[in-house]
Design a protein around this nucleic acid. Structure first.
Length: 585
RNA sequence: GCCCCUGUAGCUCAAUUGGACAGAGCACUGGACUUCUAAUCCAACGGUUACAGGUUCGAGUCCUGUCAGGGGCGCCA
């Protein structure tokens, strides 16, 4: 916002500096801290420092202050929309006329509604690959971080004008699948999945994993693996049927999380083409074939002339079977063929950073001009206390549905206490929104590269900096508007004297467009999570100090609009985070 | 041995990307519900930003080194 004012002021300053023969580089606007009033701050340190560098004998802070004062003198009367100008600490501070500023911000938010902060269409197509669970296995809290991060990034990218294609890449083949089928045939033949399909699938897998420790069982699993590899119709049919159960189970989870995918890729679908692809690389001399003594690999450091930077990428086992890289290379190509992408993003945990770098480099070496459009969006793991990594086979997991059930029942208990008059259905809906919101917010409110240590108490703490706090502010705003009735003034005047919380609220709203852009370009929902909390906190302060309904009509009018605008901005933030805002709590 | 990430209040985390006085939540202490929903608010407490140098007018942020924790390095995914 305020681009016109900014360029006007910039021009004035530039004009002055040019007259004084001073290099005018590094002119930019900052926010004035401790705002009781709004304004634009222009630090003059860069200008003064520039003079110092060019040989003038100046003490930078003093010079910056002198420049600020001189420019203040030069500008003279504040331009339209500004009330006064100050020169302090080397900054030139230009303060807006409170009434005009407030009116303008609130009007803008109300006019644009849910589109306030939205970026214009960029005409760019971005694929985001995320979630990537293995079929026939569990879905735990570690997987949750990936889905929530990926989902939020997609929403933010869309909001900033990208066309987003959500892709999921499922691990539907491999030893784990065969183990599962073996146990099913041997101990659970004919059984059907229960209500919660993923949980049921995982129970059979976990049991299979245990039984697999016995040598005779392992031998049976290997034998079944051979049948499956030979495309035994009976086994293939079982594989297809059971994979479908897994898919339906994941679908339940995605639906609950509010996620959906435009395109699902299966590992099985790129395996054969991957092996053919690797054969081609061998022919080209890019991959080295040491079979049967060794595997097929690409010596990236040798090709690039680097040392210990790209290492060696193994692309095929010595027995000719496929590895991750066997499939990831052709999949990357397929994505660009399918969708003619401008960018391809991989939401994958940070342990695979080197691997991702290797895959991207390999595609670059092969001459794909889009190789530099590949981006690894790395994030850290969710560990258990004591730095224990979640692993299905170790039994060190918190399963998604266990967590959701617990969170929801705790939220339900609180709604029961707060709002006993609501219907069961309403209470359930609120409990779910609160529980899932809380889980999502804990994942999104820390930076991508920070390890999350999962703690039941922390995850289920609905107080303080957490989603329910933000949702509650939204509910309160809605409640005021509802009680106000039909009346919603189209526009109204703001006074020059505003309460601090009103001032702060308006200032926070103006940050949304910038924060959204930042979150988008850095793939960091955290920026939005922070703003949402700040908004809620300030709104609660406002709620406590400023009466809306029981006050004089003129005040009531602008405060109502302020409440509506604040509610809108909070709602937009929550949307971008994938958190639903209930109507009551 | 090499590479990457992290290190900020007792705990969990922020910090508008190099700017004004490093801020929140939790926990602890003391207050506020006949008033728009107290899942709230106010006050108090809490800091050598791991350490040592360097660059800069200015460093939690950048560069070098050290320490601590985590992760990764030719047939796991």
């Amino acid at each position: 916002m305020f681009e016109e004012e900014k360029s006007l002021i910039k021009n004035k300053i530039r004009k002055y500096l040019t007259e004084q023969c001073i290099e005018a580089s590094g002119l930019e606007f900052r926010q004035i801290p401790f705002s009781g009033e709004w304004g634009l701050a222009v630090p003059l340190f860069p200008i003064a420092a520039g003079e110092a560098r060019s040989g003038k004998k100046v003490i930078v802070p003093k010079r910056a202050q002198a420049l600020a004062e001189a420019i203040k003198e030069h500008i003279g009367e504040p331009p339209a929309g500004f009330s006064h100008i100050e020169a302090t600490n080397g900054y030139l501070n230009l303060f807006f006329t409170t009434s005009k500023y407030a009116k303008r911000v609130v009007d803008t938010v109300m006019d644009e509604g849910g589109n306030f902060g939205r970026g214009s269409d960029r005409n760019k197509k971005v694929m985001v690959e995320y979630s990537q669970p293995n079929t026939h296995k569990s879905f735990h809290v570690g997987h949750l971080r990936n889905v929530i991060l990926g989902g939020s990034v997609c929403r933010i990218l869309e909001f900033t004008g990208f066309e987003v294609i959500r892709a999921n890449y499922l691990g539907d083949i491999g030893l784990h699948v065969v183990k599962w089928m073996w146990n099913y045939l041997k101990n659970h033949a004919g059984e059907q999945p229960g209500e919660n399909k993923t949980h049921w699938m995982n129970d059979i897998y976990a049991e299979a994993d245990q039984l697999f420790q016995e040598p005779e069982n392992e031998a049976e699993v290997r034998a079944l693996y051979a049948r499956w590899n030979a495309k035994d119709p009976e086994i293939v049919a079982l594989w297809e049927k059971t994979r479908q159960w897994s898919l339906e189970g994941f679908e339940q989870i995605y639906e609950q999380l509010g996620e959906s995918f435009d395109r699902i890729y299966f590992e099985s679908e790129v395996e054969d083409s991957g092996i053919v692809f690797i054969e081609k690389l061998i022919e080209m001399g890019i991959a080295k074939d040491e079979r049967p003594e060794g595997p097929v690999f690409i010596d990236l450091d040798a090709i690039e002339g680097t040392q210990d930077e790209y290492r060696v990428l193994v692309v095929l086992r010595s027995d000719g079977s496929s590895l991750y890289a066997t499939k990831d290379l052709p999949l990357a190509i397929k994505k660009f063929e399918d969708y003619d992408l401008d960018e391809s993003i991989y939401v994958i945990d940070a342990r695979q950073s080197l691997y991702m770098k290797q895959v991207f480099k390999t595609l670059g070496i092969l001459g794909y001009e889009w190789a530099d459009k590949l981006y690894h969006l790395a994030y850290e793991l969710v560990n258990l206390p004591g730095n224990v990594t979640m692993a299905s086979r170790e039994g060190t997991v918190v399963l998604f549905d266990d967590l959701v059930i617990e969170a929801t029942s705790r939220a339900k208990a609180i709604v029961e206490a707060k709002n006993p008059e609501l219907t069961e259905a309403q209470k359930d809906a609120i409990a779910e929104a609160v529980a899932l919101g809380a889980l999502k917010y804990t994942m999104l409110s820390r930076d991508n590269m920070k390890v999350v240590t999962f703690d039941w108490d922390a995850a289920l703490d609905f107080n303080g900096q957490a989603a329910p706090y933000i949702q509650y502010a939204h509910v309160r705003a809605g409640s005021i508007l509802r009680k106000a009735g039909e009346e919603s003034p189209k526009t109204c005047e703001f006074p020059d004297e505003l309460e601090k919380s009103e001032v702060d609220l308006i200032e926070l709203m103006t940050r949304l467009p910038n924060e959204v852009q930042r979150a988008s370009s850095e793939f960091r929902p955290l920026a939005i999570a922070n703003l949402a909390f700040e908004m809620a906190k300030t709104f609660n302060d406002f709620y406590n100090t400023c009466q809306v309904l029981n006050t004089e009509p003129e005040i009531r009018a602008y405060r109502l609009r302020l409440v509506a605008a604040a509610k809108q901005v909070i709602a937009t933030c929550l949307n971008l985070l994938g958190i639903t805002a209930p109507g009551a709590m």
